[in-house]
Design a protein around this nucleic acid. Structure first.
Lengths: 243, 243
DNA sequence: AATTAATACTTGTATAGACAAGTAAACATG
DNA sequence: CATGTTTACTTGTCTATACAAGTATTAATT
């Protein structure tokens, strides 16, 4: 295992923090499991428990672990993925109604194709490379509210269509089937006027105001998904509160 | 001064945290000034420095203070107000360009009037009460990008128009002139299609996609401002990143 | 066998003390 | 007067120790 650099002027607790972070990233401490106790860690690194606690506190603040008194410290699931997965969310700022509304999605189209230029730009691939295009509609209480078009490089996800796309989330597949950690997500939100295609899918008048959300998801430095979502402006509202 | 309750089962450091919080709120420790040193605080509360540091750490995490090595702990300005004030911000998620772009605003209209029903609802006032309506345009690099209409209850802000509205921010006036702390802000963001009025002010074609942002600002339990902002969709984009 | 009590873990809170390193003001020195 | 230098005060890091309180397992009791 890694050891502390006693000569370094980086404080011990920060060194420990970084090491633990790596272990979490490398699944040495898998999520939802206990990491070694504070006493075990202080033996391993040969520092006091206080110093270990300092490191753990940092990890708590970064939302990587949480602790339960009497039990121990538990690794949290990837926060990025969680945010990305939250249904009609884009970063938990979507107006979530009081009760959980019944929500599901349906795939209306999936195909393999060459890359349109805007997609190519965002996925950072070559002209001749193929991509998958997956079109989904998300419903809430039987009403269509969101049209999602995802683009993924074929090279990174061979045989994607062999999997059951409707029962498994795309991000779950990326992580578990293809063993790629999702490390970053970026979203751009714009207002748009719905065209013929969107209006038909979403069952709204042509020319209605909608949100256009562009999302790029990264695994390390590589972009793995580019997604365009069109969301009905009459049904949902972004919401933020500060206090 | 307040003293620790040694019998309470609330830990000392949390008690201290709450007391310091109150002092900050009551301007006993004004913003941008040093609070007493850790040693002074540990004398005052008769606990060790470690315990005081624990309390201060909490306040740091809540973004109420920051510390500088060798100097001390400094009270931060109100974070809510900061977020609300940030130019074309709505919660710091607006796409801020690399360099600071030249930005300014101009008042195009201000009047006293009776309350339209949607405003009345949000400001929680009676039918016969009057309000101020202030219309501003925000420019960036000489281009209009945002049309802002603010509504404030006349009752709470008598003689508002006596003040120079263009050189002082509304939130500054609320805080300093009228001595009301801003405690909460809420924002709703929707897509919209620009009408004749907005298009003229923003110098865009009628029927262009724009954002409509509704903001309600509270002081305690009272709403003090209701604001509608219309923002050009061709110029700005909401941006979020998770990692 | 089921329930209760003891126990050995865990994290949470707190004390007491030490030295490092950054800041700023008081103090000397040229 | 200006320029370093000391000194005192600040936060940052770390050790060592102690007891409280929650959790889960083990042992004892009924």
């Amino acid at each position: 295992m890694g050891k502390l650099d006693k000569e370094s002027n980086v404080p011990y607790y920060l060194q420990i923090k970084e090491m633990l972070k790596k272990r979490i990233k490398n699944n040495i401490y898998p999520r939802e499991t206990l990491i070694p106790s504070e006493n075990e860690l202080s033996s391993e690194f040969e520092v006091t428990r206080t110093t270990v606690r300092n490191a753990l506190k940092e990890l708590q603040n970064e939302d990587l672990i949480y602790t339960e008194k009497g039990k121990g410290s538990i690794v949290k699931g990837s926060k990025i993925k969680q945010s990305l997965m939250e249904f009609y969310s884009f970063g938990r700022r979507f107006k979530q109604n009081e009760e959980e509304k019944e929500a599901y999605s349906k795939i209306v189209d999936k195909k393999e194709m060459l890359c349109p230029s805007d997609v190519r730009e965002n996925l950072d691939i070559r002209k001749e490379d193929k991509i998958y295009e997956i079109t989904r509609i998300r419903y809430i209480e039987e009403e269509p509210v969101m049209l999602e078009i995802s683009y993924l490089p074929k090279k990174l996800f061979p045989d994607l269509f062999d999997y059951d796309m409707e029962s498994f989330s795309l991000y779950d597949m990326i992580e578990y089937r293809y063993k790629k950690n999702i490390t970053k997500g970026r979203e751009y939100i714009q207002p748009m006027i719905s065209g013929t295609k969107e209006s038909k899918f979403l069952n709204i008048d042509k020319g209605s105001p909608v949100f256009l959300v562009k999302r790029i998801t990264h695994s390390g430095k590589k972009p793995v998904e580019y997604r365009k979502s069109i969301i009905r402006g009459d049904k949902y509202v972004f919401y933020t509160e500060f206090s």
